[in-house]
Amino acid sequence: MAEHARDGAREPGELASLFNTRANAGDVEGLVALYEPDAVLAAGDVVATGHGEIRRFYADLLARKSDFPQAEVLPALIKDGLALTFARLGNGVLSVEAARRQADGTWLWAIDQLKIKPRS
């Protein structure tokens, strides 16, 4: 069984670590598995909706970039099965995501906003 099929995030903050592991392994399907089927990912001018578009986004990204340093994961804000997750990348960029608890108790991202520049 593939890693992404057996290893889900038991806490919303684990999603960033799973992302890092799978991105560095070149595991596009593992990255897609971190998102709900109808999730939205916004990165710069790109907005990808659903697994198909998110898969294309990551296939293109991984074809161009192979090193993903570990991000600093900030504490998630959690309420009633929803969470805001935050990760600060090495270049000071902040990534913010909305995650939702799934029926099996794992967490998946529903909305992912990459490269939000923090205010100076």
Rank of each mutant, 00 (worst) to 15 (best):
L94Q: 11
I116F: 09
R6C: 01
G44W: 00
P118A: 10
S17P: 00
P118M: 10
L82P: 02
D104A: 11
A87H: 00
D27V: 01
N24L: 02
A48N: 07
E72Y: 00
K117E: 15
G105Y: 10
L41K: 06
L41V: 08
N91I: 00
R6T: 11
S95D: 15
G90H: 10
I78G: 03
N24W: 03
R119W: 14
F57T: 01
G8S: 06
F57M: 04
A63M: 02
A16Q: 11
A5Y: 01
N24P: 07
L31P: 00
Y58G: 02
A110N: 10
P69Q: 03
L62Q: 01
F19L: 04
V46R: 13
A71M: 13
A103W: 10
Y35I: 09
R6L: 09
R64H: 09
L77I: 12
L34F: 12
D7H: 12
R10T: 08
E11N: 07
Y58R: 02
D7A: 10
F19T: 01
E11H: 12
P118F: 11
G81A: 11
P118V: 06
L18E: 08
G105C: 08
F86I: 02
Y35N: 07
E72N: 03
R101V: 05
K79N: 13
G90V: 05
R101W: 06
N91V: 02
Y58E: 05
G30L: 03
L89C: 02
E72T: 10
T85W: 09
P12R: 06
T49N: 13
A42N: 05
A99R: 05
L61N: 05
K117G: 13
S120I: 04
S95T: 12
S66W: 00
K115Q: 15
V96E: 03
A83F: 04
A23E: 00
R55P: 03
S120L: 11
E53G: 03
P12S: 11
P37R: 12
L89T: 07
K117W: 05
I111V: 15
K79Y: 03
L34I: 03
R101N: 07
G52S: 13
G26N: 07
E36G: 14
D80G: 13
E36H: 07
N91T: 09
D7E: 14
A2T: 06
L94P: 05
T49Y: 07
I54R: 00
E53Y: 04
L82G: 12
Q102E: 14
A25T: 00
A25G: 12
A59W: 00
E53Q: 15
V73W: 04
A103M: 07
A59D: 11
A59R: 10
L77Q: 13
K65L: 08
V28M: 05
E3Q: 04
R64F: 01
D67Q: 12
A99F: 04
V47H: 13
T49D: 06
R101G: 05
W109F: 10
E53M: 08
V73R: 12
R119S: 15
A48H: 04
R56P: 01
T85N: 06
P12W: 04
G92M: 02
I54T: 04
P118L: 10
L74R: 13
G50V: 06
L62C: 05
D112K: 05
E3N: 09
L34Y: 09
D27A: 01
A99N: 11
G105V: 07
A39P: 06
N20A: 13
F19W: 15
P69R: 03
A59H: 08
A9S: 09
D80N: 15
A9D: 05
